[in-house]
Amino acid sequence: MNDLSELKRFVVAHAISQNLPADHYASLLERITSDTGDEPGSWPYEWIRAGEEAEAAGETLAACQYHNMGRFPFVDGPGRKRALARCVETFERWRREQPGIEPVTVEVGGLPVTVWATGLSAREPRPLLVMTGGIVSPKEQWAPVLPQIAAFGMAGVVADLPGVGESPLRYGPDSWELFPAILDALAGRAKVSETYLLALSFSGHLAITAALRDRRIRGLVGNGTPIHDFFTDTAWQARVPRITRDTLAHLAGVPPDAVFAHIRPWALDDRSLRDLEIPFAAVTATEDEIIPPGDTERLRRSVRDLRLIEHPDVHGAPSHLAETRVWSLLAIQRMRPDADPRVTAALTAALEAARAGRGR
């Protein structure tokens, strides 16, 4: 069972990222009095009800995101299972109305994994951008960005971090193998030798690990990436929000009180970071309650080509969402040797406008 007050606090950042109206989800959160179950007043029921209202109003994508919040942070019972099913179902309806978004099945460790893709072509393969969310956000939360990726002249894929959403995989030390598996599956329909990864939160750690082993990956963008101290600093781990600890434990398949010992060997040391030969654009937050400041310092001293933006914000920098989105996409463009200069110029102007809107 989740701590309800903590759950409500953390879900707001995700609601903001999906542009859900604050006046709506604020009143919705007030109605929720129970984390468990699937009846009026419970977490899944109230979010699903809001999704059904959005569906009735013809707002299919908004409905998908309300249902997504209903399975947050992970499926732990029938209510959240129903919410995830509705999330995937409504996203499927929305994507059928969009040109070019398709499901692709990728085999990872002998298991079939579904990803959402766009811009694939055997006749004219494009450079590839693979996007992954963190431990609490499924692919349906981020897949609406796919049309924008296609507009940049790239093929795009959005995938679940192992164990999240529909993913049948266990989150473990070999989870980085998801990325090479995607590239193998798309070879011939995308220019996988020119692949870039946009990996949010914990998936950024997997992206770095994959890049150290697969030279088809030509650049990385991360946001709130755990590197070393998150995995090893016991004093910091005692401060980590319970929702993060419990979600990690669920994905890894270990008890919550054993999860930090379980993941300790996953830490990336300075030598590994120095071996990273490609650019890494990192979004960090000075008030991050999940990722310790020592991990940012480790990036500064060890990554050869680090492109860093630091916000006075909490994990994921939700109060700087517009700027972070544009900065991340621009970072990808600046890594690409064949990027369209018109796209780069447009993103540069959009970044300046986002910063001006914040008074920067």
Rank of each mutant, 00 (worst) to 15 (best):
A50Y: 04
W43M: 02
P73Q: 07
T33E: 13
E52D: 06
W43A: 00
G58P: 01
G77A: 08
A15P: 01
A57C: 12
D23A: 09
P40A: 13
H67F: 09
R71M: 12
G41D: 02
L29T: 02
I48Y: 14
A57T: 10
A57R: 12
F72R: 03
I32S: 01
S17Y: 09
Q18R: 15
A57K: 10
E59H: 08
E55M: 12
G41M: 04
A15I: 01
T33Y: 14
E30Y: 08
D35S: 11
D35M: 13
N68I: 03
L20Q: 02
A50Q: 02
V75H: 06
G79W: 10
V75K: 04
D35P: 04
A54Q: 06
V75Q: 03
N68H: 06
H67S: 02
H24G: 07
G79C: 12
P40C: 06
L28P: 13
S42E: 14
E55D: 05
D35V: 11
Q65C: 03
A22H: 07
E30F: 03
G51L: 02
F74M: 06
L29Y: 00
V75L: 11
W47G: 01
G70Y: 00
G51F: 05
T36F: 11
L61Y: 04
S34E: 07
W47Q: 02
T33N: 09
C64G: 07
S34C: 07
V75C: 06
A15N: 03
Q65F: 04
F72V: 00
S27Y: 12
C64P: 08
A57D: 15
P73L: 11
L29K: 04
E39W: 12
I16C: 04
G70H: 03
E55G: 15
Y25S: 04
E39P: 14
A63F: 14
R49I: 08
L29D: 02
F74W: 12
P21W: 11
S17V: 10
R31Q: 15
E59C: 07
G70K: 00
I16S: 09
H24E: 09
E59M: 10
N68P: 02
T33L: 10
Y25E: 03
L28W: 12
W43G: 01
R80L: 01
Y25H: 06
I16M: 12
A54Y: 05
S17I: 14
E55R: 08
A63S: 09
M69E: 13
G51H: 10
G77H: 07
A57P: 11
Q65V: 00
P44L: 13
F74C: 04
A54T: 01
G51I: 05
F72Y: 11
N19A: 15
I32H: 01
T60M: 08
L29S: 00
Y66K: 03
I32F: 03
I48A: 13
Q18S: 15
N19I: 03
P73C: 15
M69S: 10
L28R: 13
